[in-house]
Computed example of a mutant assay.
Amino acid sequence: MLNTSFLKLTKLFAVLLFLNICLSCKEEVSLNFSEISIVEDTDATIEINIPKAEGATNAAKQINNTLNQFVNNALDINNLKTNETNTTNSIAVFKKAYLDFKSQIGKTLYTDLPAWEVLVDGEIIYKSETLVSIAMNSSINTGGAHSNLIFKFFNFNIKTGKTLQTKDLINDIPAFTALAKKYYDKEILSATDDRISAFNNNDFKLPENLGFNEEGVIIFYDTFITGSNNVIEFIVPYTLANDYLNF
């Protein structure tokens, strides 16, 4: 009788231990996000709104470092490539650069120098048990005719925080490229003349970064560096893309 009761307790303990391990693993993989919001309107105008991975895990740290690096690169107008991860320091350096420039150029101007402006936004556009896709964009204006615009998708492995490249996401890049080109050609057919001249070429390639949302794979091309701000964006639905995805 005693042995039977002991065996039952042992089995119960084993089941509870197994469930606890499963739940712990599930909690470990899960990753929650909040938002960082920074607004500075003294000297220069700076507004930053980006996601923040919560927790002290290595995955959260890696994701936050990568997103912060995007912000700090936007603030690095002197292109110093310092790999600064502290946004507070980057803001201070940016504002000092503006004040120094204002002091130097202001001696030759008869009007006030317009304040420099930095806007950085980030948004989680897709999240699953294995992947989180974040769209980041920045707009920098230091007094020129056009703002300097940058748009980029970041895809992270939720468990490790690793930044996933196209080769990590797509298992057959040539075949997926051929599929994406069909949607690209269709988009070009309905585009205006200036968009056609900005994008149309015979050497079709996937963009450097892919995005993901609930509908499918986001393909995004831009010509922000030309000042024309032309974009082409379309979605390859999961019904066709799933066979080429690694997640």
Rank of each mutant, 00 (worst) to 15 (best):
A60W: 05
A60F: 06
A60T: 13
K61E: 13
K61S: 14
Q62L: 15
Q62D: 14
I63W: 08
N64P: 08
N64M: 09
N65Q: 15
N65V: 03
L67G: 08
N68H: 13
N68F: 10
N68D: 13
N68A: 13
Q69E: 15
V71G: 08
V71E: 13
N72I: 13
N73G: 10
N73C: 11
A74G: 15
L75M: 12
L75A: 12
L75S: 11
D76Q: 07
D76A: 09
D76K: 03
D76G: 11
D76P: 09
N78M: 13
N78F: 12
N79Y: 10
N79W: 04
L80P: 03
K81V: 01
K81M: 06
K81N: 14
T82H: 06
N83C: 07
N83K: 15
N83E: 12
T85L: 14
T87F: 02
T88W: 02
T88D: 15
T88N: 15
T88G: 14
N89Y: 04
N89G: 01
N89M: 04
A92P: 00
V93G: 00
V93C: 00
K95S: 13
K96H: 03
L99W: 02
L99C: 01
F101N: 14
S103E: 09
Q104P: 00
Q104C: 00
Q104I: 04
I105Y: 02
I105C: 00
I105Q: 06
G106W: 01
G106Q: 05
G106T: 01
T108K: 04
T108S: 09
T108R: 02
T108P: 01
T108W: 00
L113T: 02
P114H: 04
A115V: 07
W116F: 12
E117R: 11
V118A: 11
L119C: 04
L119Y: 07
V120T: 05
V120Y: 01
D121W: 00
D121N: 14
D121P: 03
E123D: 12
I124S: 02
I124C: 01
I125A: 15
Y126C: 02
Y126K: 03
K127Y: 07
S128E: 05
T130Y: 08
T130K: 13
T130M: 05
L131F: 02
I134N: 09
A135T: 01
A135D: 12
A135V: 02
M136A: 09
M136E: 08
S138F: 04
S138A: 11
S138H: 06
S139Q: 13
N141E: 08
T142M: 11
T142L: 07
G144Y: 09
G144V: 10
A145I: 10
H146E: 12
S147I: 01
S147F: 02
N148R: 10
N148P: 00
F151Y: 13
K152I: 03
K152V: 05
K152C: 06
F153T: 09
F153W: 14
F154K: 11
N155F: 05
F156A: 11
N157V: 03
I158M: 09
K159V: 04
K159L: 06
T160L: 01
G161T: 01
K162I: 00
T163M: 04
L164C: 07
L164H: 02
L164R: 04
T166P: 04
K167D: 12
K167P: 01
L169H: 01
L169Y: 03
L169S: 06
I170F: 05
I170Q: 04
N171G: 07
D172S: 06
I173M: 09
P174I: 06
F176N: 04
T177I: 06
T177R: 15
L179G: 10
